[in-house]
Design a protein around this nucleic acid. Structure first.
Lengths: 207, 207
DNA sequence: CTGATATCTTACCCATGGGTAAGATAAATT
DNA sequence: AATTTATCTTACCCATGGGTAAGATATCAG
């Protein structure tokens, strides 16, 4: 956990890195204590400055939050595009999705997207975020549907299956600790395996 | 969605049903808007009374929240006990857990346990809740471990597998809508199947 | 070195919301 | 019917926290 208070050690004019320091610190606190329980004073204190100084870098508190969501959704967008170009069976796409998405859920801004309370957003931003989440869901569902059609996925309700998988990976941002015992890599690998192959031992062809 | 404002239509002394009306209304709002965004005024308004009247039935706002958690954890406790007595393979216990737990996550007070922000609790209550959540995790993990030992579950890291399954079922309370298209029954059934058997088509012995 | 400008601080405003004091009113009790 | 008592309301207190006004100070350009 880097400390970004050094960015404000001097009054040297360097808005870009100072803005970044504010953003990182705020995101960290939002994930730790939630957005609403993090006051602008809390953010300022961590950076060894006072509250009004923050308003040189962000118009208001929500603008910081929006930036967190923006960076997070960009990360997700990248993996979705990767997978779309990634040719293979529906099941392979689902597996790739789980693996990549699980990794994103262990990165700070990625965690923000699913961990922070969307209800803290203004109605416009909330509508946008909801649309984006629906888009992710549609994508995952289409991978599953593809799999059912090409025979790689067992027949099932794609909608429910998508919720099932999305839940497993989205929940990661609720319990994952960057300094914890489990690495993002091992989590992603086993999630991909468990969700596609199931918990039960397969009768033939052990992997 | 029942309206409980009728409970306060008359001043007849009936504290039990009035307290229940407050609790149900509050739980409903907590799930809809979150605890912190629900003011005591909001609760009172729904019941056609004024804020101070609420304090005849609950000492403070947090006492309402605690009651929500208490009722929810009781529901979970019941299913855990049922499964423990339910003899069978580890896999069968996991399957039973997923099925029952998914159902609980569609009931209002059950949803409260995993959907409401635990950070809104006082430190004592928070510690209790965290302990209880750890207990659930240990139980699920032990079912999986049992399965690995009796051969019904494929070898894997029980800790990660437990997080995977818990995530899928806990997430239900984030998207489930009581008046929605999907019934609790079909969700629970397919979740139990998908999480144990996996998304991939099984090579032999189709179910 | 000097003036201009970005940066940051002190002191404040005000809306929100949990909670309470004190009194009004209706229901139960006698 | 009178009185007690639970119930509920009006009016208020106060802590928290987002945001701003106005001024101080350090940095940079010339």
């Amino acid at each position: 956990m880097l400390s970004h208070y050094k960015a404000f050690a001097s009054r040297r004019r360097d808005p870009a890195t100072k803005r970044e320091a504010v953003l990182q610190t705020a995101a960290h606190l939002f994930l730790e204590k939630s957005y609403s329980r993090t006051s602008m004073n809390d953010v300022a204190e961590r950076l060894n400055i006072t509250k009004p100084a923050l308003y040189h870098y962000f118009r208001n508190k929500e603008e910081i939050l929006l930036e967190c969501y923006r960076l997070g959704t960009t990360l997700i967008e990248e993996i979705l595009n990767d997978i779309a170009s990634h040719c293979g069976t529906g099941l392979e796409k689902v597996e790739a999705f789980v693996y990549s998405y699980a990794n994103v859920m262990t990165v700070n801004f990625g965690r923000c997207v699913m961990r922070l309370d969307e209800g803290d957003l203004s109605s416009d931003a909330l509508a946008d975020l909801r649309n984006y989440k629906r888009k992710i869901d549609r994508r995952l569902r289409s991978f599953i549907q593809e799999g059912i059609e090409d025979g790689s996925v067992a027949p099932c309700d794609a909608k429910i299956a998508a919720f099932c998988i999305a839940g497993a990976v989205n929940w990661i941002c609720q319990w994952y600790e960057p300094e914890g015992a489990l690495s993002a890599e091992e989590i992603a690998t086993q999630f991909a395996r468990t969700l596609t192959q199931g918990l039960a031992r397969r009768p033939r062809k052990e992997s």
